[in-house]
Design a binder for these strands. Structure first.
Lengths: 207, 207
DNA sequence: ATAGAAATACCGACTTGTCGGTATTTCCCC
DNA sequence: GGGGAAATACCGACAAGTCGGTATTTCTAT
């Protein structure tokens, strides 16, 4: 089997390096390189590749948007997301859009090539330990590390989404007092002084 | 001239791909690959390379920390930062630490190779339009787009760093009232309701 | 030189967050 | 089934942010 593919990644060096690497593989031919989301569709039209290696964060359109567009216009073309982010939401969204594969940028060369051929054979390729499981695991780790409870974690997530204590109380059918108590306990456990610090902490720990 | 180098980047695929790419270059030899900040020093000790390609964001130690340690122990070894981020602070810090080069991951293959040889010849290599100039440009764009003033931008940056209005007032030798007035005007111009939203806005727009 | 923008400053009122203490109920493990 | 953790709830006090209005001084560009 031969795989004609396009690489879509705005990091030129990464894009080039992957190209160089894949050109050494038997049966893989890099027929195009693009460096922004908008240009993917034009390149696909021009080359009609078998597969697209697609970064998520690109200027213009995100990889997930591009994937949706390609699925609609060219259902035969395989799509492999190539992302830095092992993010539950991204992975879930990809599954929702029927993206064929999701590979992390800290995969090895062998994994990438295996993934490409897996997807080419029509099977989905989602790297082991990707998405939900990992996140649940991380969540457990986090709870243990800081002695947080489930409720506290739930409230951290809502605080991060910029809900006020009152908002959270309404949403969870609690008293504002309760929410504030939880927040106080959270701050105590994490050694935090204010909302902003909590949000940054949560983002740093990818809650 | 021959350049024996180590690649330090936690994204395995990128690391491998760069290795593959550089191995095709005359005179460049990849003598080591590491995937975390802590392991760089051991590899340096083992291989005593001429140059290190160093990512900034790595688990364990940041590239900038590593650079400092290497400069102290092995002043002869050239360091080239290879980062995604065209961030003023990173670039300034690298200059402060006398890092020899700073290359963006969206450079081209030619640029990378040129940069490596430039640094090998003892000259600094900081990609064109890097650091201050670029940031000033971005800053101007931002000011124009949202009709912000310099003072307002200054205050946004401090708010982002989790300073309270009082802190900012102390720092800039202003009255709290003044700072609050600025903040109100900022919120008005950006259509923002609270501190957290402002911080997120600032982060999204890379202020 | 002068008009308009920017920066500075203040007041009062209200909201939201932080922190101290305290107390009851609910749930789960041994 | 009993004990401890978790979740729920309240009060008061103070700190910080939000918002309305207003006013003076300092730049700056025409």
């Amino acid at each position: 089997m031969i795989c004609r593919l396009i690489i879509a990644d705005d990091h030129v060096l990464f894009n080039d390096a992957i190209k160089t690497m894949l050109e050494q593989e038997q049966g893989i031919e890099v027929v195009g390189q693009v460096f922004s989301g908008e240009k993917v569709l034009a390149a696909v039209k021009r080359e009609e590749p078998d597969l697209i290696l697609l970064d998520i964060k690109m200027p213009g359109m995100t990889g997930i948007e591009v994937a949706g567009a390609i699925r609609d216009c060219y259902p035969g073309i395989r799509i492999m997301i190539l992302s830095m982010y092992d993010d539950k939401r991204f992975v879930q969204e990809c599954k929702k859009y029927n993206v064929h594969g999701y590979m992390l940028k800290n995969a090895s060369r062998e994994e990438l090539v295996n993934g490409i051929w897996t997807v080419m054979e029509g099977r989905p390729y989602y790297a082991a330990g990707l998405g939900e499981k990992v996140n649940i695991h991380q969540q457990d780790d986090f709870i243990r590390r800081y002695n947080l409870t489930k409720r506290e974690l739930e409230i951290i997530r809502l605080v991060k989404e910029n809900y006020t204590a009152q908002d959270i109380a309404d949403r969870l059918f609690l008293s504002v007092y309760t929410v504030e108590t939880h927040r106080r306990n959270i701050n105590l456990k994490l050694g935090i002084k204010n909302t902003l610090a909590l949000v940054k902490f949560a983002e740093d720990n990818e809650i």
